[in-house]
């Protein structure tokens, strides 16, 4: 289990790991693979339409997670490849890097997946993702008008998020 130790929430945002406007985009998925939120700050290249892009992203994360669960060199009992796993079960991953971008990934116990795509030279963003999850809890989950599982339409959440991501990456 890689979930947050204890119930403490970080009240202040973690210090920035890079300066400048390096955030590309952010996805929030729920556990059924529905894209709750998609924010885009700097994305010159669009290869697919939005819906296909979200599907492909969720599929990539799902498959990478089953790959890391199967590959885990520290545990002997790994089960079969491709068997769906509960959030927090099996070895997961927190980021991958290509020559053009870095993708940071976090899954919460309730199966919410937060994905932040940044410049490849960005540092460790695990704390930042926890902070973004915090924002999600504060601005979305605690909003009485929000129906769980529906796309997020909160102006306040979006502006806070934009501001925060501009600050970290």
């Amino acid at each position: 289990m890689q979930f947050f130790g204890g119930s403490e929430i970080s009240p202040s945002p973690p210090p920035p790991t890079a300066s400048g406007n390096n955030g590309h985009m952010l996805y929030v998925f729920n556990r059924n693979g529905i894209c709750l939120l998609y924010r885009e700050w700097n994305r010159p290249l669009h290869t697919l339409n939005a819906q296909q892009d979200h599907k492909l992203m969720f599929g990539l994360l799902f498959s990478l997670k089953s790959l890391t669960a199967k590959m885990d060199p520290t545990s002997a009992e790994k089960g079969n490849l491709g068997v769906p796993q509960l959030p927090g079960q099996g070895c997961s991953f927190h980021s991958f890097r290509t020559n053009t971008y870095k993708l940071s990934f976090m899954e919460t116990p309730s199966g919410i997946k937060i994905i932040l795509v940044t410049h490849p030279r960005t540092g460790d963003l695990r704390d930042s993702l926890k902070y973004i999850y915090n924002l999600y809890v504060e601005y979305v989950v605690k909003n009485p008008l929000y129906t769980p599982g529906s796309p997020i339409r909160s102006e306040l959440f979006n502006t806070t998020l934009d501001q925060y991501v501009r600050g970290i990456a």
């Binding site: 890689q2 590309h24 985009m25 700097n42 994305r43 010159p44 290249l45 290869t47 697919l48 892009d53 492909l56 992203m57 599929g59 990539l60 498959s63 990478l64 790959l67 890391t68 590959m71 885990d72 060199p73 520290t74 545990s75 070895c91 997961s92 991953f93 927190h94 980021s95 991958f96 890097r97 290509t98 020559n99 053009t100 971008y101 993708l103 795509v117």
Partner: peptide, 27 residues
């Protein structure tokens, strides 16, 4: 092999050549 190919399609900028480093919890 497939994940490597898909990661190229999802790149926000052109010229992506696939995953170079995957950081999992234990490896």
């Amino acid at each position: 092999h497939s994940m490597h190919a898909i990661s190229q399609q999802l790149s926000p900028v052109s010229g992506c050549s696939g995953i170079e480093l995957l950081q999992a919890d234990t490896f």
